[in-house]
Each structure stands twice: as C-alpha cells, then as structure tokens.
Design a protein around this nucleic acid. Structure first.
Lengths: 160, 160
DNA sequence: CATAAATATCTTGACGTCAAGATAATAGCC
DNA sequence: GGCTATTATCTTGACGTCAAGATATTTATG
C-alpha cells in the first residue's frame, strides 16, 4: 500500500464509476521517473552540471570525433526547442565547456564543439552517471529488467 | 531499433568500457513518461487546465466532502514546494475554481475548497482523463499491464 | 540574376518550479 | 504569563522550458 494505492482508493470511493487501474500504472511511471531524475541530478551536481548541460555535453561526446554538432543536430537528439538549446549553449559557452563558431560552409549555422575541459568533464561525469544508474536499477533482477525493457519498448513503440 | 537504441550504440562505440544497459531502461522510462505527460496535457488543455491545476483540483475532489484541504495537505499529496503551491492556488483562485479562506481554528493556515464551478469542471476533466489514460495503455495486454505494475511497484519500493 | 521560399538560429515573453528567506500565528516550557 | 521554538504560508530571485516571432543566410525558381 503505497501513496499511489492511496490515491486510487480515494478515487474508487469518490468515483466508483471510473476504472482507475491505468492511473496506477501511469502514476507509478511518473513518480519513478521523478526519483530516477533526482538520483541522476545528484551526480550531475557533483560535477558542476545539471540534466540540461549534461544532456548537451553527452550528446557531443557520444557523437565521436571531432565532438562537434550543429545546434540543429543537438536539438534533434535532445528533443528540445531551439530557444531552449540557445539558452543551454549560452551557459555552456560561458562556463567554457563548449565553443560556438560560425559554420564556414553555411553562414546561417554554427558549429558547437566540446572544449578540452568539456571533454574531460563529460567523460568523468558519464562514468559516474552510468555507475549511478546501475545502482538505481539494482533492486530488479536481470530477468525483471529484461521483461521491463521489453514492455517499455512495446509501449514506447505505440508513441514513436 | 529506436532512438534509445541509437544512443546506446553510440556509447558502445565511444565508451566500450561502460555497460549502458541501465541507461536504456531509464531512458525509455523517461521518454515514455514524457509522451504520457504530453497525451494527458491535451486533455487538460481541452478543459482549460494544465497538469499543475488539474493536480490540485483532482486532489481536492478525491479527498471527498467537503472538498477542502489546507495548503499543507495539498503540498503533501502533490509533492511540490510551498512556493509552487502558493503559485498554483493564486491562479486557481483567480479563475474561480477554488476559494481560499483563513482557517478559523488556526490563524496561520488557510482552507482551500473547490467552488461549484471547480467541482463541475474537475468531474468532467477526470472522466476524460481516465478515458484518455485507458487509451494510452491499450497497446499492452491485461497481463502485460499486470506484470508492468508489479515491476514498477517493486522498483518504486526501493525509493519510497 | 532577382526574388521568393526555406532554413538555422536567436530573441522575447510567459510559465511552472525550486530554494531560501520573510512573516505571522500557535505551542511549549520555565 | 512571557519568551522561544515550531508551524503555516507567502515572497523573492533564479532557472529551464516553450511558443511565437525576428533576423540572417542559403536555395530554388522563373
């Protein structure tokens, strides 16, 4: 009997006409994701980052040599709006983790690249991040994780 | 091979020292939750609400007669900070969905109550919301949902 | 070529959220 | 009872985000 169950019970008492089972599933997803985000944020903070800046640096890092993408490409990978990306890049440029140069081949665009400092930071941060993620899924057995992945994949497929 | 798989592949190429399987699970959770939130937001918007205002009205509604709680109780149920709740209540009061009266038994506190207008709205909105949630989980079979619920419950238990 | 359409990015304004601190009222303790 | 701690809520300032619109550049078209 967790908090979600209490909420469902309240609904069943007040609105017995509704079948609130899906609300339980979705509610647990949401709450779990919040806990996971919070757990990850701790690692980001420990490295002087947050989810937003980590997201950008990690995208540049895993893109491989030369660790450079256009704002548009970053927008596609991270699924944020252009205004959000501009804001993120502003901050990362200020802190010296990326450089923002005009694209010599297209005057409309820019090239965002990891600096040496940014590269070192994100490599360290990702290592800790992955370790942390391992710790957070540890309660589930290998089989349970596999089952969960399969179900999440199927569900996600309905949206993407 | 979805977007998450592509991200994992990039990491495996760039950082073969990392086991990124948990990143897949957590990434799918996050993305799925975003899709679900977006789907729910559509219903809220259709009723002149958003996730924040729906959250408060729904909490008051399912609390049962007399559909009134203190800001502190609302904060507990919705898990937001006091500043956030003040802001939410300001807007809901402005739009006439709730009333905010001093608590006659404790001069420090307030009593937040659904108005007739707010009660009618949330009853309609919740009906549509639950229907929408049903539609969004429909791709999973009854058994799959049961399994998912069990796994999410176990995982959530590790945090709460 | 000149002009219109498309593209890449930035700017602006409005939200929702949080952390930290301010304010006011009640409760507990000598 | 009077002082102090606690509680309830609001205020302030900073973020991160988005939608819509502005600006600059390139591409396509006649």
């Amino acid at each position: 009997m967790d908090q979600i169950d209490r909420i469902l019970d309240q609904w069943r008492a007040e609105r017995p006409d509704l079948d609130v089972a899906p609300m339980g599933t979705i509610g647990r997803m949401k709450r779990l994701t919040a806990h996971l985000a919070q757990g990850m944020e701790r690692v980001f903070t420990a490295h002087g980052l947050n989810a937003a800046s980590f997201d950008v640096l990690a995208t540049l890092r895993r893109a491989g040599e030369p660790y450079a993408l256009s704002p548009s490409e970053l927008i596609e990978w991270t699924m944020v709006t252009s205004g959000t990306m501009t804001n993120r890049l502003d901050r990362l440029e200020q802190t010296g983790f990326i450089t923002r140069r005009r694209n010599p081949e297209d005057g409309r665009g820019f090239v965002i690249a990891l600096t040496e400092k940014g590269h070192k930071l994100i490599d360290k941060a990702v290592t800790a991040h992955v370790e942390n993620q391992h710790a957070m899924v540890e309660v589930l057995s290998e089989n349970e994780r596999k089952t969960l992945d399969r179900l999440l994949g199927k569900w996600l497929g309905a949206f993407e």
